[in-house]
C-alpha cells in the first residue's frame, strides 16, 4: 500500500473532509502545490480554486472548491482552513455566473462607489467556481 497522509478540510461553519489521502493538490497563492506524504512543514495562503485529494486505492479524486483560506502542512497531517468551502457538486453554476456578471457590471460602472478591489475579488472567486464546475463536468462526461 502506498504511503498516506491525513487530510482535514474545515471551514468556520462546518467540517468538509477528513480522511487519508495519497496526494493532495492545493491552489496556493504562488501557484498550485502538490503534496505527498512527508512533505516539509509549510504554511501557505490559498487562493480561490479547486482542492484535489487523491484517495488511497481509488481512481477517483475528491474535488473541493475553496474560496481562499490557509493551508498547513506537517509531515503527516495536512490541514486546510477554508474560508468557505462547499462540495464541488453543490456549486450553483447559475449563481456563480450571476455573481460574475454583477461583479463585472460593478467594475465597469466606475461612477458607483463600489470598492474596486472587492469587485475584483468577487470576480476571481466566481471564475474559480466556474473552473471547478467545468473540471467536474469533464470528469462526468
Amino acid at each position: 500500500m502506498a504511503m498516506t497522509i491525513h487530510v482535514d478540510v474545515v471551514s468556520a461553519e462546518t467540517s468538509i473532509f477528513s480522511g487519508l489521502a495519497e496526494f493532495v493538490v492545493a491552489p496556493a497563492t504562488l501557484g498550485e502545490v502538490g503534496i505527498f506524504p512527508r512533505h516539509a512543514p509549510l504554511l501557505s495562503r490559498i487562493k480561490p480554486g479547486a482542492l484535489r485529494i487523491k484517495l488511497p486505492d481509488e481512481a477517483e479524486e475528491v474535488l473541493i472548491f475553496v474560496s481562499g483560506g490557509l493551508l498547513e502542512v506537517q509531515p503527516n497531517v495536512i490541514t486546510v482552513l477554508a474560508d468557505t468551502a462547499i462540495r464541488g457538486q453543490d456549486l450553483d453554476e447559475a449563481k456563480a455566473l450571476e455573481a460574475k456578471q454583477a461583479a463585472e457590471a460593478a467594475m465597469k460602472d466606475k461612477s458607483s462607489e463600489v470598492d474596486y478591489a472587492r469587485a475584483q475579488a468577487e470576480l476571481m472567486e466566481a471564475l474559480a467556481q466556474l473552473q471547478t464546475i467545468q473540471k467536474l463536468k469533464k470528469k462526468t462526461h
Binding site: T29, L30, V33, P41, R45, Q74
Partner: peptide, 13 residues
C-alpha cells in the same frame, strides 16, 4: 516544533 516554510512570506501568512 516546526520550522515552517511560509508562502508567500511569514508576515502575510
Amino acid at each position: 516544533h516546526w520550522d515552517y516554510i511560509y508562502e508567500p512570506d511569514a508576515k502575510l501568512v
